[in-house]
Computed example of a mutant assay.
Amino acid sequence: GTPLLSPGGTVVPAAPLPHPRLSKLHDEIFAFAQASILSGEAAHAEVMTILASLRGVVGARWHQASVELYGSRSTGLSLASSDVDVTLLGMPINGGRESIGAALKDLHSDLEKTSWVASQQLVLSARIPVLKVKSTTGVPVDITISDTAQHTGLLARDLVLGYLHEAPQLTPLVIVLKSFLREMGLNDPFTGGMSSYSLVVLLWMFICESVHRGYATTDLGYQLIGFFSMFLYRFESQLTHVDDPLSPMISGPGEVRENIMHSCYQIGRVCRTFHRALQVLSPEQPAWDDEETPLLPRLFTEVAGSSRATQTDPHQSSPLDTGS
């Protein structure tokens, strides 16, 4: 607070202003994220062991190559079920796809000799050829080869780490929303759900807009409610294009920017889910201030539970399921 002058003329420090009371939902979101991070520590230790083994195997065959971790395992935003995404840099692959495929086959052969690998699958027909490995404890590892340091996964990793540095409140919000979307079956872009990257970018945009408008961004509960509202306002109006913040780095001048929501063809179902979540968690609900009634679990029991009971074919389109 501002120092005050006493009647005798000496400076008396003002009593600090009391911190505004944070919502009950804020505490529940923080506790949920903390528990999720703690439960993932054992998996994190195994991921580090897998990475060390991979670096040894790759380095033995290709001395100039390096193994880079990206995706949610590299940013602290992973769930227990998250994949491990790695790419190999500095590989001798001058022949394009053919030499990438040959290198992945060599790596497949080398990994067969390691004790932690339970199964492997080469997917050379994918847009980006990948070696999919599963550890003996069930940890999935996707290995790709990059012919340039401008690998979009690495660029996205560094972008997200920058966001987290600027807005640490992103971490608990992302973990709660990723867990919720996973429960709903809406967290996989390959089946029309939202990618983790899209979720982080949209949350970052929301926090930036909140700061710009002068709103407080410290209460995770109100941030979650505000994000649901922003999402519905934006996407229920049929607008499903969101520029990829990485586009200026990977696109040429004048090119149309990549849309981070292009694969989210279940956007209609995401909107309906967030609408129901907003109803359940609304500050106008009696449970908002009732210390005896937890709020966050209702997101998983009432919203996700009822959706699973009534879920239709995930490929069925709705009026809101637009492409781009």
Rank of each mutant, 00 (worst) to 15 (best):
G1K: 08
G9E: 13
V12L: 13
P16T: 07
L17S: 10
P18T: 06
R21T: 10
H26I: 06
S36I: 11
L38C: 14
S39R: 12
A45S: 11
E46N: 08
V47N: 06
L54F: 08
G56F: 09
A60N: 13
A65V: 00
R73Y: 12
A80H: 08
D83I: 12
G90I: 02
G90V: 01
G96T: 04
L104W: 05
H108C: 09
H108R: 14
S109A: 15
E112K: 14
T114L: 08
A118Q: 09
V123H: 11
R127Q: 11
I128W: 03
T136F: 08
P140N: 07
T144S: 13
H151F: 03
R157F: 13
D158C: 04
L164M: 12
E166A: 06
T171N: 10
L173Q: 00
E183W: 01
M184V: 04
D188Y: 03
G193E: 04
G193P: 00
S195T: 07
E209R: 09
S210D: 03
S210V: 06
H212L: 15
G214T: 09
A216Y: 09
D219Y: 06
L220P: 08
L220F: 04
Y222R: 15
M230H: 14
E236W: 13
S237P: 05
H241W: 10
G254V: 01
R257V: 07
E258A: 10
Q266C: 15
R269N: 07
V270D: 15
F274V: 00
L281F: 01
S282A: 14
S282W: 08
P283T: 00
E291W: 12
T293P: 12
L296H: 01
L296S: 03
L296T: 03
L296D: 04
P297E: 00
V303D: 01
A304M: 02
G305K: 00
Q311G: 10
T312S: 07
T312Y: 14
D313I: 05
G323Q: 11
S324E: 10
